[in-house]
Design a protein around this nucleic acid. Structure first.
Length: 621
RNA sequence: CGGGGCGUAGCUCAGUCUGGCCAGAGCGCUUGGUUUGGGACCAAGAGGCCGCGGGUUCAAAUCCCGCCGCCCCGACCA
């Protein structure tokens, strides 16, 4: 008790001096021990006064917010919505974006990628070259300029980067090259949702690699994959790389990086036993073993029979009507392709996966047939299609191999067939995996049951091959003097999405608890002034001591009640909190608290910078 | 694109079904005072094209028509 204010201020500074000097010395010596902190040691950390910034916190979440991250981002004053899927970023949010961008830059540069900055405004001609002006669909924002030229607001940048590289006139000696940018993308999403997770305007890091041969692409891809693991680890995300489908383009490798969270839009199929993970489009399951081929049993099978099923269109209706289970029914789904119509056969309780079907059928476009088309092609109405006497390509899911005496549509109104059997009653052109897996099925690698989980796609790496380089003649001269298309890869990261995913992964009822590397500030100093005018100068000296130690500090210097400050502090989720108040004046101590721990430490002022440093080192992730 | 819901103060919402005092509350904001270690208290205030346009009516936040905006669910499995 009764330490004079001057002494306290002196002590607060003294506590920092050692740390500050140590950082300076290390920086001067070019030490690699604290590469990230070196700059801060020379130029002290940054300080912001709450009262002079723009940090509008809200006690209540806006009514249109649904997910935890959406509510908290608005309440903590990180973002404000302007219109559907369009957000303004406020100072605290901007600082989070800065941290994410810094991590991404560091890791991309470390992986050998080179930063560029490409336009958002693209001439439509470029998009015509690859056919994507039409193929991209309604999500592409277009407008006509004053000269009457059609322009595109870039939703992605394959065309622009490919144009840039083809005009650079690279030879094989210049390859590989990997160019990246951090840029705002515009996509007219049909349904923006979950706050900043799916928006019409968002920040993305996109990288494009150009290689001379497939082995080079493999190396580029692996370098990006490794960089992504580092990036999402540093961002503190609970993530998992999952196998993803690439469609028919090249038939190559693709992985999505999913932050596992309830607010996720994507379904991840994974195996706890062996680590297999894939998205819903790509996921497979192990076929049951030892099933007899239906053909072997043909002689003892009962004859196929027609049954009247008035108005029974869906699998559920037919199953109930005939007293069978959906797994005893075969669904016949018609698709329109560029080569005409084809029928996909799957078990009644299974669902056709158009991507797998497209691949198996080797067609480039696939659309479900309309009711009119079904009537015309099968002779029967929708709901009564079947493979018997059907005159078109028929592909069957592998699960049909072990089925016998099943039910199908009869291609006539109110008619189904029972005791239908493969080979005897109809033929399938091929058997293949044509369906989505279901939860609990056997893992394709180890046969353990597969589990489902939702995730937020925060990154995607993709072996493009030569789709764009061929279409746009992005070529290089190889060692023999031959012109060859470059082999491309593309690699995206949703910058704005990471902020939301990090909050989904790190929050509690009171608010956000930022991962160490994403926090907008490292320390928040609360001054609980009351009527004591000696406290603000003490708080300021504490802030300065922390700055000198290299920390970025937010100082809540507002004239608010303690309760309001504590509540806001928990809400915005700065990792470490330092309280300067009555106890500092009376007892010569400040309170240091980690956002991740329930209790706080009371430490003498002369030791407080070291205590903060200790807590900072212990803060995970 | 289909279905559902909502639109009243900066935020959360009541009032609308059953038309009728000056359109309300809490939070936030301003001023004064009292408070000050977990969203303080008292008092006085400011703040509304009741989403927009049209109609019905003596009278519309409220009823009718049209439009716009926002949110949620779904997007064809025969």
């Amino acid at each position: 008790m009764g330490v004079s204010q001057k002494n306290l201020i002196t002590l607060l500074y003294a506590g920092s001096a050692g740390v500050g000097r140590r950082f300076r010395k290390l920086a001067a010596a070019g030490s690699r021990r604290w590469p990230c902190r070196a700059a801060f040691a020379i130029n002290a950390g940054l300080m912001m006064r709450w009262s002079r910034s723009f940090l509008p916190t809200l006690r209540e979440a806006p009514s249109d917010a649904e997910s935890a991250s959406h509510k908290l981002m608005v309440r903590a004053g990180l973002v404000r919505q302007l219109s559907a899927g369009v957000y303004s970023w406020l100072p605290l949010g901007v600082r989070v974006l800065d941290r994410i961008r810094a991590i991404v830059r560091e890791e991309m540069n470390r992986a050998g990628a080179i930063e560029v900055y490409l336009p958002v405004l693209h001439p439509a001609e470029l998009w015509k070259e690859t056919g994507r002006l039409d193929a991209y669909g309604d999500a592409l924002c277009k407008f006509t300029d004053r000269k009457g030229h059609l322009n595109v607001l870039g939703p992605t940048h394959e065309e622009v980067i490919t144009d840039l590289v083809r005009n650079a006139n690279f030879s094989y000696r210049d390859l590989p090259v990997n160019l990246y940018q951090i840029q705002t993308k515009i996509r007219d999403e049909p349904r923006p949702r979950f706050g900043v997770i799916r928006t019409r305007e968002f920040i993305m890091k996109d990288a494009y690699s150009f290689d001379a041969d497939p082995a080079g692409l493999d190396r580029s891809y692996e370098a990006m994959y490794a960089a992504y693991v580092r990036i999402f680890t540093r961002c503190g995300l609970r993530f998992r790389p999952v196998e993803a489908d690439t469609g028919l383009i090249g038939g190559d490798v693709s992985h999505e990086f999913m932050a596992m969270a309830d607010a996720g839009e994507d379904l991840v199929v994974h195996c706890a036993a062996c680590g297999y993970a894939a998205n819903r489009e790509k996921a497979e399951s192990r076929a049951p073993e030892g099933e007899p081929d239906a053909a072997d049993l043909t002689p003892i099978l009962p004859p196929m029979k027609q049954v009247t099923t008035p108005g029974q269109r869906t699998v559920e209706q037919v199953a109930a009507f005939l007293g069978v289970t959906p797994s005893g029914i075969v669904k016949t789904i018609l698709f329109r392709t560029e080569q005409g119509f084809l029928a996909a056969l799957v078990r009644g309780d299974h669902d056709v996966n158009p991507l797998k079907l497209q691949r198996a059928a080797r067609v480039s476009a696939l659309d479900m047939a309309t009711a009119d088309e079904i009537q015309k092609e099968t002779g029967g109405p929708i709901g009564f299609s079947g493979p018997v006497n059907l005159k078109m390509r028929i592909l069957a899911d592998s699960a049909l191999k072990s089925m016998k005496n099943f039910v199908t549509g009869g291609n006539r109104p109110d008619l189904h067939l029972i005791n239908v059997n493969l080979h005897r009653d109809f033929e399938s052109e091929a058997f293949a995996d044509l369906r989505y897996v279901q939860e609990g099925e056997a893992c394709p690698r180890c046969a353990a049951p597969l589990a489902f989980a939702t995730g937020i796609e925060v990154g995607h790496v993709f072996k493009l091959g030569t789709k764009y380089s061929t279409a746009m003649r992005c070529e290089f001269l190889d060692g023999t003097g031959t012109r060859r298309p470059m082999i491309m890869g593309c690699y995206g990261i949703g910058i704005t999405r990471i902020a939301a995913a990090a909050i989904e992964n790190h929050h509690d009822d009171a608010g956000i608890a930022w991962p160490k590397e994403l926090a907008p500030f490292q320390i928040e100093v609360l001054s609980l002034k009351g009527k004591d005018d000696r406290i603000p100068p003490l708080a300021e000296s504490a802030v300065q001591a922390l700055e000198q130690a290299g920390f970025d500090v937010l100082w809540d210097d507002r004239d608010e009640s303690p309760g309001a400050k504590f509540a806001d502090s928990d809400l915005i989720g700065i990792p470490l909190r330092v309280v300067v108040g009555k106890r500092t004046v009376e007892g010569g101590t400040v309170d240091v608290k980690s956002r991740r721990k329930p209790e706080q430490r009371s430490v003498p002022v002369k030791e407080f910078v070291n205590a903060v440093q200790e807590e900072w080192n212990a803060y995970r992730p």
